[in-house]
Simulated scan of single mutants.
Amino acid sequence: MRVGVVQFPGSCDEVDALLAAERAVGAGNAELLWHRDRDLKGVDAVVVPGGFSYGDYLRAGAIAALSPAMESVAAFARDGGPVLGICNGFQVLCEAGLLPGTMLMNVGRRFVFRQVELDVVAADTAWTRATRRGQLLSIPAKHQTGRWYAPDETVERLVADDQVVFRYAAGDNYNGSSDGIAGVCNAARNVVGLMPHPEHAVDPLTGSADGLLLFRSPLEAAGVA
């Protein structure tokens, strides 16, 4: 399996995402995809990484969502390809209409960096097959515009359709996200977005290797793990 990581001007976590993917799928099996290039180079999974694409001008993720690479990512997702959006990548996927909801500024209106615990709500998506429902994952989060929001009726529909993938554990919803939601998926369950950064939690020396489970999940979904 080969994983592509999209790189935008202002991305700052694409290298960590690349290295995390290589830990899961093997060295040399992950590569950067430039935002102006429509060619996804035949990859089997795509990661849209964190950072500040285009300096978050206009709105976080709004400009990146219009990039040529994202046109190809959208087509890849429609064909069932696994796509993961991390932090700014989650913002991009929401702006591109690939995931429901939108991102608002944290309730404290400040950038916050802290370790959080995520409760796995859905373990059957392309990016959570290596986890189990109810498992707690220790993952760092770092953002200012990370308060996921959707109208109550949308939240109710997502809950009913099991499209809520992660919730912040009790006491960890510091940004005020609706219903404590930290990550969601599309109806087909191949596109997942979350605000915390699993690529920064792939080695016990950094405090947790729980994030590696997400990068291993596409292998299990493809039956090659």
Rank of each mutant, 00 (worst) to 15 (best):
V3P: 04
V3Q: 08
G4N: 05
V5S: 03
F8L: 10
P9L: 04
P9T: 08
C12R: 13
R23G: 02
R23V: 04
A24C: 06
G28V: 02
A30R: 03
A30Q: 00
L33F: 04
D37T: 04
R38S: 14
R38H: 02
R38P: 12
D39H: 09
V43I: 02
D44E: 15
V48F: 05
P49G: 11
F52K: 08
G55D: 13
L58H: 07
A62L: 08
I63V: 15
I63Y: 13
A65M: 10
S67M: 02
A74W: 02
G80H: 05
C87N: 10
C94P: 01
L98G: 07
G101R: 09
T102K: 10
T102W: 05
M105T: 15
R109G: 01
R110A: 15
Q115N: 14
V116C: 09
V121D: 04
A122W: 00
R133L: 07
Q135G: 06
L136D: 08
I139H: 03
Y149P: 00
E153Y: 12
R157M: 02
L158Y: 08
D161W: 00
V164F: 02
V165T: 14
Y168K: 03
A170V: 12
D172K: 00
Y174N: 01
S178L: 00
G180H: 12
I181H: 01
G183I: 08
N186G: 14
A187D: 11
V191D: 12
V191L: 11
V192R: 06
A201K: 00
A209Y: 01
L212T: 10
L214M: 15
S217E: 06
A222V: 00
